[in-house]
């Protein structure tokens, strides 16, 4: 998922009678589940909202390399190291794919990266939490990618064609990641007492941050209505969060780990699990830049970009020279 609190670039939904002819035709397409493609007419606010959402999603994939990369050099076996490398490589590939989807809306990857580095765009709050023991890597695959899947499966039906197609492709890889993550944490939950302790610690620390990935509760989510009408957003934050909780509790029970929240209980009447709300003041603090890793994550990304400038310039200069030589030879 990785797209949270996307501010819709409009002030509420426009009533149909106030819409222009173009806007009406656009809304009709959406209502009839016809995908919007890059060359189709679209309201400027729709385009801007999508750029925010897809851009934030892309940034999350890229920044998400850091907490997982934190353990690549310490992976405990060759196989686990290979799996983790393959996963992180996939995430970077998702970033690339999503930046390309954003580019179809008329914004370049470099512009988006600049906005991120200037603090004008965000990435998912989850990547501002640290990975502290090896079980965290399992938990990230299981819970974080698991939460992402719940959101992204819904987004496969999103109205913008390139984004929808990106989601379909990305979901396939994410399911594989989630299974690998679960397999890694399973090995620890059923391992030595020390390993089990690490697995429990990872679950306890990452449970609420994973729930926060879906964004604030519907009551507080002010920007959702227009995005839902445009089918940029397909299900509400609370619906998606509930779905994630319902599918994850039995998995925790299978691992014989303690539930990370004393209020988790099956509610017969609702047909869902009850659970505690995450600490929303903490969430808003992380969003504002006060999470445990915000500063370091951005410092790392900006340094990578700045230190790499000479490489990008060098390769570009060479490509130009080569093209000029080719022209000269013809």
């Amino acid at each position: 998922m990785y797209a949270q609190m996307i501010k819709t670039a409009s002030n509420g939904i426009k009533p149909r009678e106030e819409m222009s002819e173009e806007e009406r035709a656009f809304q009709d397409k959406i209502d009839n589940d016809i995908k919007i493609e890059p060359r189709d007419w679209m309201p400027e606010d729709y385009r801007r909202t999508l750029i925010r959402q897809i851009g934030q999603h892309a940034h999350s994939e890229v920044v998400g390399q850091l907490p997982e990369g934190n353990w690549i050099t310490r992976a405990p076996t060759l196989e686990r190291k290979a799996i983790l490398l393959a996963k992180v490589q996939d995430e970077a590939g998702h970033g690339l794919y999503l930046y390309s989807a954003a580019e179809t809306l008329g914004v370049s990857r470099d512009e988006l990266i600049e906005l991120l580095h200037e603090g004008k765009m965000k990435y998912s709050s989850i990547f501002n939490y640290p990975t502290l023991n090896w079980a965290d890597i399992g938990a990230v695959g299981w819970l974080v990618d698991g939460a992402a899947i719940v959101n992204q499966v819904a987004l496969q039906r999103t109205s913008y064609g390139p984004y929808s197609r990106a989601m379909i492709r990305i979901c396939k890889e994410e399911s594989f990641h989630a299974r690998q993550g679960y397999d890694a944490i399973r090995a620890m939950a059923f391992g030595t007492p020390e390993q089990k302790r690490q697995a429990q610690d990872a679950l306890n620390r990452l449970w609420f941050p994973a729930l926060m990935m879906f964004g604030p509760s519907d009551a507080e989510s002010t920007h959702s209505e227009q995005s839902m009408a445009w089918k940029i957003k397909v299900k509400s934050n609370d619906e998606l969060r509930q779905q994630f909780v319902d599918q994850t509790i039995p998995q925790i029970e299978y691992l014989k780990l303690d539930l990370p929240d004393p209020n988790i209980k099956w509610n017969e009447e609702r047909g869902h699990y009850d659970f505690s709300e995450p600490d929303w003041p903490e969430f808003f603090n992380v969003i504002k830049g006060n999470g445990p890793c915000n500063v370091d994550r951005m410092k790392d990304r900006v340094a990578a970009w700045d230190d790499g400038e000479w490489v990008r310039d060098g390769l570009l200069a060479h490509a130009r020279k080569k093209a000029a030589r080719k022209v000269a030879a013809e």
């Binding site: 390399q65 790392d300 970009w305």
Partner: peptide, 17 residues
């Protein structure tokens, strides 16, 4: 693998991994 997430450009992160 130490380069993960720190390359000059996203394509290089992918290639190095």
């Amino acid at each position: 693998s130490e380069w993960c997430g720190h390359s000059p450009v996203l394509e290089e992160d992918i290639a190095l991994a």
